[in-house]
Nucleic acid binder design. Structure first.
Ligand SMILES: [Mn+2]
Ligand SMILES: [Mn+2]
Ligand SMILES: [Mn+2]
Ligand SMILES: [Mn+2]
Lengths: 243, 243
DNA sequence: CAGTGAATTTAGATTCACCTAAAAATAAAA
DNA sequence: TTTTATTTTTAGGTGAATCTAAATTCACTG
């Protein structure tokens, strides 16, 4: 087999071979966390991700990040140019999407099947997303009925990395008299989600903007056609409504 | 709270406090594998576990085991005397039982909910047993209906570490005309379980011994009152029947 | 466009889990 | 009871992932 591959490399295209998934390379727990962090940071802006940003989200030091970037670059997971920032290669993006798939499927499992609250699942899923078996991932997906969105409204990548993209806009970007349904949150931290629970805001809640206070950009909203609420700017920047 | 505990230590028994779970210490993935290995090796014989045995089951070298034993000894997880072997402390046994609890609950989940075959679950569970959340473990237990045995017939420890012990004996120890129900296997390796599948032997199967061939200790058995089978000595040493 | 400040990388160390080779202790045989 | 064989430990070292401190490069500003 090894001999055959050797032949193949010499007869055809070396480059394709190097990038192809003949060796479905596996990555350490740590490498996977870096890959996910880079994916999430590049999802926002379209530019290269910088070292300090990665260090911050992973709660590590810039020097450690540089080490890892060199390593991931050698593995062809990232495009890395010294001092110029980093981005995922196609292979890297595929890996990232599989980690995110697992994260969001497990979050869905925890909420749907084990009755976790949506603010309790992130930390646990951060561990479970590293379980390697793809059979497990696909069976879990099936068991859950092939869900397209996780408990925070985030899309779940399919086995091939595709996700449903829904049109959404931030509550903070809407105008008086606009209305919509809550379809996602921009922040999955427990404190924020607990606040939403307390206010009675959940995925699926109907919201209409009644008034906008220019002084601090807070909003007066109507929740489910009856309850009036005051929402700060910080909060409205973290709620997505259907567009 | 801390102040109160301080008082308690001085007023009553220092030793109990030192062993109590004030600091619910956490253990690395690697440490947990050693703890589990030592538990399983001491479950058989009652004597101390020796270094080479641990090295063998963990597929590592004796020198590495010695390093880890010193480390686990410092953490009060094992009683370790140089050259004399090792055993788990009470705390170590508690930790081991929680790992085994998770392993067996996840195996049960995989078979009951995700339709895995019983020969496919061990490797996956070896990863999942390290997920730390006790809330997750207990919710999973509840979701599965508090099962008492895993897909291989092994007892599942409760949150407090208790397990149902069923009376069982090896098929190889039984006599002609004895009968019983399969309640467990002594070997969970895929190849053995696949062989049982092929033969139609599963947990719950009724078996009666028809004849015993002295030459090689193989058995002629009746499976489910109709099917006649020939079972080698190796196989019969790995099947438990109800006593 | 030189000069400062921030971002990034390098240099050098540490900890964890592992290894090989050699020494020491224990167990088995002669 | 010596001698020999086996088991176990020590000594010394490696790679992964981390750190601090110092050097370098980049970006902005006067
Ligand atoms: Mn999450
Ligand atoms: Mn989520
Ligand atoms: Mn198992
Ligand atoms: Mn089992």
């Amino acid at each position: 087999m090894s001999a055959f591959l050797g032949l193949y490399i010499h007869s055809f295209r070396i480059h394709t071979i190097a990038h192809s998934p003949i060796t479905t390379m596996s990555h350490s727990y740590t490498e996977e966390n870096y890959i996910k962090a880079i994916y999430k940071l590049s999802a926002n802006g379209t530019q290269e991700v910088n070292t300090n940003a990665i260090a911050e989200v992973l709660e590590t030091k810039a020097a450690s990040v540089t080490d890892m970037l060199r390593k991931l670059s050698a593995k062809d997971i990232v495009n890395y140019v010294k001092y110029k920032g980093v981005s995922l290669t196609e292979q890297g993006e595929r890996v990232a999407l599989q980690i995110i798939r697992k994260h969001r499927l497990w979050e869905t499992f925890l909420v749907e099947k084990l009755k976790f609250n949506w603010d309790e699942v992130h930390e646990v899923a951060d561990e479970m997303e590293h379980i390697s078996s793809t059979l497990l991932t696909n069976r879990l997906d099936e068991f859950l009925g092939f869900p397209k969105f996780d408990p925070h409204g985030d899309p779940i990548p399919s086995e091939t990395g595709e996700m449903k993209q829904i049109k959404q806009r931030l509550l903070s970007d809407m105008e008086v008299n606009d209305a919509g349904v809550v379809v996602g949150v921009n922040d999955s931290q427990p404190l924020f989600l607990q606040y939403l629970d307390k206010m009675g805001i959940a995925l699926g809640s109907k919201i209409k903007i009644i008034d906008k206070i220019p002084y601090d950009n807070s909003l007066e909203i109507n929740l489910e056609d009856n309850k009036k609420l005051l929402i700060s700017s910080e909060v409205s920047k973290n709620i997505f409504l259907s567009a």
